[in-house]
Design a protein around this nucleic acid. Structure first.
Length: 846
RNA sequence: GCCGGAGUGGCGGAACUGGCAGACGCGCGCGACUCAAACUCGCGUGUCCUUACGGAUUUGUGGGUUCGAUUCCCACCUCCGGCACCA
């Protein structure tokens, strides 16, 4: 193999003293009857579970259902360690719930449409379909090595015609309900992906394509949108779901609700000119208005003598956005239109400007400019020498002067220079102004949202065709439901031209109008793949169902999703789309309930050993297949749960996994070594073992509920250490020992399904450990009888005393004061105060 | 600029409701086994002082509340994430 260069990180096993395989072979524990060799047991059990249908989940009205869902993978062709990190703890938790009596469904499938397939096709001249389905084949094999409890009968692949036919069906439903519409607009375009993007797919200040990190540009195009804005308010409500705070915040910020007022100004020509403002209390300070260059009234209001200037500016603004995204310097520019507007609150005539700092896509595309109280307007006013008139006087500031102020004042305060409203105090200013506007019918309280409608058109081949037809006489026509699916043709040429490849197919786009039967043309754009993933959780329920997107019987039983797990990077994409989709379909009577997923938890990212994001070019990619080969799936699963907090993720540590290898080997050794005890265990040993076992059950149960997988593993490690101690003290063979073994394997089962099944069988217990009940805590057994009380003097730890549980405060105090160490530190002084916390400590204040 | 999160040993991390900080693991040190190594097992391992016994100190920094603060409050510093001409 060729060396990739000096910056390449060593492979993950390089720090081990030998190759992974040797590492395992050399590690036999002497006392064991047989070495722990995952390769001997893991495939064996995987085959048996599959043959037995152990993880099939079927409708069972007698058991509570539980729908556990992990985000479906994109079939890139290589299962990533990130997939393992996301999926194996989710699997463990699904198993835990199953052991708790739930009828748990844990399905899997593939998000199979998308750009990488097409890019691979262009690069390597392989059909996107072939590439995708080959990858799916390979990933099915890889996924099986996890030993997860997938119900493979539920597998759905979003690029199957039987799947996307229903994506098309939903498109039509949205269309018919006025939630899908076509609009000519300035949209985001990725010049590398050669397609438009949804606003959600443009990231950060630099406006980079979410997929390829290329700066996006603006293009004026006719595109399809979904009216997600209609649901903005409802999407802000998370009352019915248990989603992580950070996701709720991301979505809330993304939706960006602002409260204020809409105010209707009038142009000189008498046209209403509506603006949105969050500060109606500053209305009297509006000294000019600004329209976005694209605003529909611009040409009408432009005065004769300003025509050329305005025209040039519009021209320049549109060219600028086409060539380059927003200028980095951000110097505001604009021109006077020569037109004027009348301020409804004081009938004042103010000039109308156009400027590109006003966005056509937010609010009404027009603003009232109040330079005294808005930073942007202030900057603009000073640049073009426009009037600055303060109308709000904050209490703690010197009286404001428009001529001399060096910056705008955004703070609240009492109104000044505001006609009849002058003198209104801060807390009244906004509501009073709104009331006034409403009384005069010149405005009203209003709410605006930052979120934009979801642009779903993509100029690429490998996606769901948009089921619409354009007819010269009848216009835009939906494809009738009974003619779905509109299938993708296989014989296609991929030309990275920036236009949809379907457009260049010789015959595909030609069809007849569903309305008049005359020749018509198909829509050649395909849908955003987030459309496919907005409803896959429901297709999983019945992937082979033909009479609808899903079998209503299955839907009624399984929905909604009880727990959804996946990456947080989808917070403002998939996770917001899927909520919108569900709510839109609910309003059409297709889905039930207000939310598709009740509980959401997000894992962090596994970084390379160099703490950088894993990437082929950095050479820091950890390949799960190699890890499984070297250590076995159980070890990889357990290590991924153990190495960090699940919600945080963190750098991979190839040394650290050794600790989990050792633990698993010690588990194996303890359960397979049949050396009889040499001595009888004391009652203390047995009692203590039982206590530790039940305390461990309590801890593991709580940790599963809280998604704290790292402490589940550490708890199991501790319990194992405890069992080794008990064995040394002669515990083997007692009934307490047998209970400990039994419970240990049940606790281990969700985490390490193979070794626990193998050892369970070796103990002669009935197949399968995975259908056993999760152990119940015996509170009496878990209770402590003797505890250590901490004795503090002035809050400093001075002594520890051993006392029985339930010792009275008086006795605890007496016992603490009697301690020799305490006597020494008290130095003959009398205690001023003694605090006794039962079961915890005694603090003596002197 | 706005919104949010996080700072605990050499490292990943643990700590119930304000009550023994550092569980568990990695790494490191010493020892046993071995001709030797690896593996495995045992012991130790926050920092400083002390030969030792022991003591002091310690959860980003500075304050506050409290008998007692990693935990609550205030201010600040650093790092991370999101948004950003959103009126």
């Amino acid at each position: 193999m060729e060396c990739a260069g000096p910056s390449r990180a060593p492979p993950y096993w390089a720090s081990l003293s030998s190759s992974p395989t040797q590492y395992l072979e050399n590690s036999g524990v002497e006392i064991m009857n047989e070495k722990y060799n995952p390769a001997d047991i893991e495939p064996k059990w995987q085959e048996k579970w599959e043959a037995d249908g152990l993880y099939h989940a079927d409708i069972d009205p007698d058991r509570p259902k539980y729908y556990a869902l992990t985000m479906l993978p994109y079939p890139s062709g290589e299962l990533h360690i990130g997939h393992w990190f996301a999926m194996t703890p989710s699997d463990a938790r699904a198993r835990y719930l199953r052991m708790n009596g739930y009828n748990v469904m844990f399905p899997i499938g593939f998000d199979a449409f998308g750009l990488p397939a097409e890019n691979a096709a262009i690069k390597r001249n392989i059909h996107p379909k072939k590439w995708t389905y080959q990858n799916i084949e390979r990933m099915r094999v890889q996924l099986r090595t996890m030993g997860a409890m997938w119900d493979w009968r539920r597998e759905a692949v979003s690029s199957d015609p039987e799947y996307y036919r229903w994506s098309q069906f939903f498109f039509l439903q949205l269309y018919e309900n006025g939630l899908a519409y076509r609009k000519d607009a300035a949209v985001d375009w990725c010049p590398n992906c050669n397609t438009t993007l949804a606003r959600e797919q443009v990231w950060g200040e630099d406006r980079l394509c979410e997929r390829c990190q290329t700066p996006v540009i603006k293009k004026q195009l006719e595109q399809w949108f979904f009216k997600i804005t209609k649901y903005a308010e409802e999407l802000l409500n998370f009352d019915q779901i248990d989603w992580e705070e950070r996701v709720r915040l991301l979505q809330t910020n993304w939706i960006g609700r602002s409260e204020g007022a809409s105010v209707v100004f009038r142009t000189e020509q008498g046209d209403p000119l509506e603006v949105f403002t969050t500060r109606p209390d500053t209305l009297w300070g509006a000294t000019f208005m600004v329209l976005a260059p694209e605003h529909s009234l611009v040409l009408k209001i432009t005065a004769e003598e300003q025509h050329d200037t305005v025209h040039d500016y519009i021209e320049q603004a549109s060219r600028q956005s086409e060539i380059e995204r927003e200028a980095t310097d951000r110097e505001k520019t604009g021109v006077f239109t020569g037109g004027y507007a009348i301020n409804p609150v004081n009938d004042e005539k103010i000039p109308i400007w156009i400027a590109d700092y006003v966005l056509s896509s937010y609010g009404t595309g027009a603003i009232m400019a109040v330079p005294a109280h808005d930073e942007r307007d202030f900057e603009f006013a000073r640049k073009y020498d426009l009037e600055v008139r303060p109308v709000i006087q904050p209490e703690d500031l010197e009286p404001l002067d428009g001529e001399s102020m060096g910056t705008s004042v955004v703070a609240y305060g009492s109104m000044i220079n505001s006609g009849e409203m002058t003198g209104t105090p801060a807390d009244q200013a906004i509501p009073s102004t709104i009331a006034n506007l409403e009384k005069n019918k010149t405005g009203k309280g209003a709410v605006n949202y930052r979120i934009r409608d979801w642009l779903i058109s993509r100029q690429r081949y490998w996606g769901t065709p948009i089921p619409m037809v354009y007819c010269e006489t009848c216009g835009v026509q939906p494809v009738p439901e009974d003619r779905l699916p509109v299938e993708l043709p296989d014989d296609i040429e991929w030309r990275p031209t920036g236009e949809s490849p379907l457009k260049f197919h010789p015959t595909w786009k030609h069809t007849t109008c569903p309305n008049c039967d005359e020749p018509a043309v198909r829509e050649t754009d395909t849908m955003d793949t987030f459309m496919c993933s907005s409803w896959y959780h429901a297709r999983y329920l019945s992937p082979d169902y033909h009479d609808g997107p899903w079998d209503p019987k299955e839907y009624d039983y399984w929905m909604p999703v009880d727990t959804y797990t996946g990456g947080i990077e989808h917070a403002t994409m998939h996770l917001i789309y899927t909520r919108f989709f569900h709510k839109a379909l609910r309003d059409m009577g297709i889905t039930e309930g207000n939310e598709p997923m009740l509980q959401l938890r997000n894992q962090g990212i596994v970084l390379g050993e160099d703490s950088e994001k894993m990437s082929k070019s950095r050479g820091n990619v950890v390949a799960p297949d190699k890890l499984v080969e070297a250590y076995g799936a159980d070890v990889v699963r357990a290590y991924l749960m153990f190495f960090s907090r699940w919600d945080l993720g963190g750098p991979w540590d190839s040394q650290g996994i050794g600790g989990v290898v050792r633990w698993m080997r010690r588990v194996w050794a303890l359960f397979t070594d049949e050396t009889p005890a040499h001595e009888e265990p004391t009652e203390d040993v047995k009692r203590s073992l039982r206590r530790k076992v039940h305390q461990a059950v309590r801890a593991a149960t709580g940790d599963f509920e809280k998604f704290e997988f790292n402490t589940i593993i550490s708890g199991l490690m501790e319990l194992l250490n405890e069992m080794y101690r008990a064995r040394k003290a002669g515990g083997v063979g007692s009934s307490e020992w047998e209970e400990a073994q039994d419970i240990y394997l049940r606790l281990l089962a969700p985490v390490a399904p193979h070794i626990s099944e193998e050892l369970w069988e070796r103990l002669g217990k009935p197949y399968s450990v995975h259908t056993q009940a999760w152990p119940k805590v015996d509170e009496d057994a878990a209770a402590e009888e003797i505890i250590t009380l901490v004795v503090q003097i002035n809050g400093k730890l001075r002594d520890r005393i051993t006392v029985p549980v339930g010792l009275s405060k008086e006795d605890a105090q007496a016992k603490a004061l009697a301690s020799e160490v305490v006597q020494k530190f008290m130095d003959g002084k009398e205690p001023k105060k003694v605090i006794v916390v039962e079961g915890k400590l005694v603090n003596i204040v002197i």
